[in-house]
């Protein structure tokens, strides 16, 4: 795998807004059939990194390589056309639209000609329902149902199925499990595995270490705009990763200090720091 060309690669990418440096010297690689987990606390620059990857922001310095070739995205559509698809936390779907319509926003199947092109609802519904069912969501049968009636996990799955259907090669998932319950989250994790099995490169952004460890092959921890650690599956334990995300202050130290306080204060926990 190491000698293969990665689908997507960032080389020394910096991003600053005026005088504020948000991303510094980011180097990342993701291969086909691999899940790269991007971990980081709030404000670590995850969102900026995603937006740079999907063409919303242009890097201030550094290069983005696709299949080893230098690329530039002037707008989100450029990235999409190259096969980079982003699914946001709330699924990027439209609550009050039907599944079929929502699935084909921007790429509607049509019949007819010229200005009299007709949105082909039956075809849209059929394709959308089939694509979602292929991902194991068998509860969806009717493409006319409103997206808002689906569960959070189903909406995520719909959005992922949509990206895959439209030929995504790189799937960027922005905190897909953050707002979900345990069962719904495991649902989404299964879908991530399915996408990986189909040979997609997945970039999975999360701050839930458990979710990352369940599907990840490769992990990068982002702290204050820089990559603080880059390691492969099995190289670090869950505790080590959590410590890294918390910014180096190890959880174990914190626990030890609480315990020592409790030992000297008749088992009472320490008061919160002022």
């Amino acid at each position: 795998m190491a000698d293969q060309t990665p689908i997507l690669e960032l080389e020394h990418v910096d991003k600053s807004f005026g005088p504020i440096d948000v991303l510094m010297d980011i180097n990342l690689k993701v291969h086909a059939g691999e899940v790269l987990c991007l971990l980081g606390d709030n404000g670590a620059g995850k969102s900026t990194l995603i937006k740079t990857l999907c063409g919303v922001f242009k890097p201030t310095a550094g290069k983005i390589l696709m299949d080893g070739k230098d690329v530039r995205f002037n707008r989100p559509r450029d990235a999409q056309e190259m096969g980079i698809s982003t699914v946001h936390q709330f699924g990027g779907t439209f609550a009050l639209m039907s599944i079929g319509r929502s699935f084909f926003v921007g790429v509607e199947p049509t019949r007819g000609w010229g200005p009299f092109k007709i949105f082909d609802r039956a075809k849209a519904n059929e394709i959308a329902v089939r694509a979602v069912r292929d991902f194991g969501i068998t509860r969806i049968e009717d493409g006319d149902r409103l997206v808002g009636g689906l569960s959070g996990g189903e909406r995520q799955s719909l959005a992922i199925a949509r990206a895959v259907h439209f030929g995504a090669r790189v799937l960027i998932l922005d905190e897909p499990t953050a707002a979900l319950g345990v069962k719904q989250a495991s649902h989404v994790l299964r879908i991530i595995n399915e996408a990986k099995r189909r040979g997609l490169a997945v970039i999975f952004i999360t701050h839930q270490v458990m979710h990352a460890m369940a599907v990840g092959d490769h992990f990068a921890v982002l702290i204050r705009g820089a990559i603080a650690a880059d390691f492969r599956r099995g190289e670090k334990t869950r505790e080590e990763i959590t410590d890294l995300m918390a910014g180096g202050e190890t959880m174990a130290d914190l626990e030890a200090s609480i315990e020592s306080y409790e030992d000297t204060h008749e088992g009472r926990p320490p008061p919160p720091a002022p």
Partner: peptide, 10 residues
Amino acid sequence: GDRESARNAG
């Protein structure tokens, strides 16, 4: 429905 998502969808 969602301006941001619509833009992302092209």
